[in-house]
C-alpha cells in the first residue's frame, strides 16, 4: 500500500471552515457550561462509535505546537487510542506523548488521567450519548425543554430507581452531574470515580458527540456536582486491594483475568500512571520486584 501524502490533507484533516464552525460551537459551549450545543458533525474516516466527536473537537483546537496524548479506558496502547494517535500524527505531525503532565491536549475515552491536570491543558472527551435525560424521556423535544426550564426531577428518578432496585445508587459510569449550578450533564461513560476530578478542574474540558452532533464544555475551575440524595450520598468506587503492579491505593483499578481457574489481578487502568510509579520503585504484590514474588509466586 502506498503512503498517503500528508500534504494532500489540510492540517488536522478538517478544512478550515469546518474547524471554525466547530470552534464557534466550542465557544458557545464554554460560555454556557454543560449546555449541549448542536454542531454540523462531519463524516470522519472511521465509524461512529470510534470517537468521531472527540476527534473533530481535537482537530478544531489542536495546533502544530501542541503535544497530544490519547487514551482509551485510561490506557495509551489499546486499539482505539493507538489508531487515533496515528491518525493525528499523520494529519498534523504533532508530537505525541504518553506523559500526562507533558501533554497539552488529551483526548480520552472513558477515563480522566490519575495525574492532576493543570491550567493550559485541554481534556477532550469522546461522547456516545450526550443526553442524560434520555434514559427516562426519549423525546428530544421534551428533554430540550426540560433543560431550558431546568426541570430536572427526572434525573433523580433514575437514582431513586437504582436505590430501590439495588439498595444503593448503582450507576457507576455516566453518573449525572450538575454543572455550574445550572445544566444537567452526562459526563460521557467515565466511571463515577472520575466525577470528583471534574469539579473545579484547572484544565478546560471539552465533550464531542459525533453521531449525536453535540458539543458541550466545562470551563476551568467550574463547579461540577454529582447528584445524590440527602440520605444516599454520592460516593466513588473503592477496591479492597491496591494495584497489583504499582501498589497504588487511590487509583481506578481494572480487573484482569489471568487464567480460567479464577485467577485475576487488579491493576491501574491509567497505564502511564502505573508505569511511572513502577519506575519510581513502587511495587504491587504481582510485580517482579515484590517480596511475595520471590517466595511463593502468585496465588
Amino acid at each position: 500500500m502506498e503512503m498517503v501524502d500528508k500534504q494532500s490533507y489540510n492540517f488536522a484533516y478538517l478544512d478550515e471552515q469546518t474547524k471554525r464552525m466547530i470552534r464557534r460551537a466550542l465557544l458557545k459551549a464554554v460560555a454556557i457550561p454543560g449546555y449541549q450545543v448542536p454542531f454540523a458533525s462531519r463524516e470522519m474516516p472511521m465509524p461512529y462509535g470510534w470517537g468521531t466527536g472527540g476527534i473533530q473537537v481535537t482537530a478544531a483546537v489542536i495546533g502544530p505546537e501542541d503535544v497530544l496524548k490519547v487514551i482509551d479506558q485510561g490506557s495509551d496502547d489499546t486499539t482505539n487510542a493507538v489508531s487515533i494517535r496515528k491518525f493525528f500524527t499523520k494529519v498534523t505531525n504533532v508530537e505525541t506523548t504518553e506523559d500526562t503532565a507533558k501533554a497539552t491536549v488529551i483526548q480520552t475515552r472513558h477515563r480522566i488521567p490519575e495525574t492532576d491536570l493543570t491550567e493550559g491543558q485541554i481534556l477532550v472527551y469522546q461522547v456516545p450519548i450526550p443526553e442524560p435525560l434520555r434514559f427516562l424521556e426519549p423525546r428530544e423535544t421534551e428533554t430540550r425543554k426540560m433543560h431550558a426550564m431546568e426541570e430536572y426531577g427526572l434525573m433523580h428518578v433514575k437514582l431513586y430507581e437504582d436505590i430501590s432496585q439495588h439498595g444503593e445508587i448503582a450507576t457507576t459510569y455516566a453518573y449525572p452531574v450538575e454543572v455550574a449550578g445550572r445544566y444537567m450533564m452526562d459526563p460521557s461513560p467515565t466511571p463515577k470515580f472520575d466525577n470528583p476530578k471534574m469539579d473545579r478542574m484547572p484544565a478546560l474540558q471539552l465533550f464531542g458527540a459525533g453521531r449525536e452532533k453535540r458539543i458541550y464544555a466545562i470551563p476551568p475551575y467550574t463547579t461540577v456536582k454529582s447528584l445524590d440524595f440527602d440520605d444516599h450520598k454520592f460516593s466513588i468506587q473503592k477496591w479492597e486491594q491496591p494495584c497489583a503492579l504499582c501498589g497504588a491505593e487511590e487509583s481506578f483499578l481494572d480487573e484482569v483475568i489471568l487464567d480460567d481457574h479464577g485467577g485475576r489481578m487488579f491493576v491501574c487502568s491509567d497505564s502511564h500512571f502505573c508505569q511511572t510509579r513502577q519506575d519510581e520503585g513502587h511495587r504491587g504484590e504481582m510485580s517482579p520486584g515484590h517480596p511475595l514474588q520471590k517466595r511463593e509466586g502468585v496465588q
Partner: peptide, 14 residues
C-alpha cells in the same frame, strides 16, 4: 409517584 416530589426539590430518599 416520587417524580413530582423530586421535581420540586425533594432530596431525601427515605
Amino acid at each position: 409517584i416520587g417524580e413530582r416530589l423530586m421535581g420540586v426539590g425533594w432530596r431525601h430518599y427515605g
